[in-house]
Amino acid sequence: MYGIVVGHLTDHPIAPVAVLPGDNIVIRQLKGINNFIAIDLNERILKNYQINISGLPNSDLRITRWVLMLWVSVLMSALIFIPLGRMIKKDRYGSKSRWVNMWESLIGFVHDEIVEPNFDHKYIKTAMPYFSSVFFFILFCNLMGLVPGASTATGNLAVTGGLAIFTLLGMFAVGFVKQGPLWIVTGIVPHGIPVFLFPMLWAIELVGLLIKPFALTVRLFANMTAGHIVIIIFLYLIMMFESYFVGIASVAGSLMIFLLELLVAFIQAYIFAVLSAMFIGSSMHAH
């Protein structure tokens, strides 16, 4: 059972699949794309780029299920937001289309709840593109994970860590640019403390600074993984007990968790984006 659960929740490079004669045209095209990635890209080119970092498992640049899901999210974002930008620009004073208004309200949510409370007025315009990207990218990854057959890209420490690295870099970049290179020494320690406490507090604050993105990483990963584990285990109970009654209860239970996961997908995207905004915004000013 551990194997099944972990097999669902862990990453594998895209492997070739056999094209059967009975497949219809759509399946054949999808399998063709899959085999193009698996054979032409993964086996011939990307397998040769080895990455060996001490402490981390040896790896290469082969495209995996998770990478594919990330790309699907990028594709969705592009397909939704690029035409949306044109539509919103065309109807300057509000579109009648429900589709446009739905996305507009979500963008307004990012603007009002994530960016505006954490940034000065003049930086909102600069910060909006980044945080909108973070929010919608994570949101689409989370929601794609709920589609049967797809997988949750954000339920992986490497993906959430990769996103949190941007928050860390953002904190450092904004701190250095806005408060000068000495920010890392004076900017992060509260003013008005005794001098002899300064080194100790500086060390604590520095560690705190590094822990913040780490907490982001683990929070998103744990939230997205936990729900999936529960759903899988609920369904696995049917196979364990081989009983219809268990089946009814399991399906009902996993449906409830599924709906909860829908909520969690939004909440976690919001939390990741809002905490990133808070961390990056707080290195704008000395505190």
Binding site: T10, L56, T64, W66, L70, A158, G162
Partner: peptide, 18 residues
């Protein structure tokens, strides 16, 4: 498991997206 390959792809993908 933290897969450096996936980490790298995430960073590339996100930069491309932004």
């Amino acid at each position: 498991k933290v897969d450096p390959g996936l980490l790298l792809w995430t960073i590339i993908t996100f930069i491309v997206l932004v």
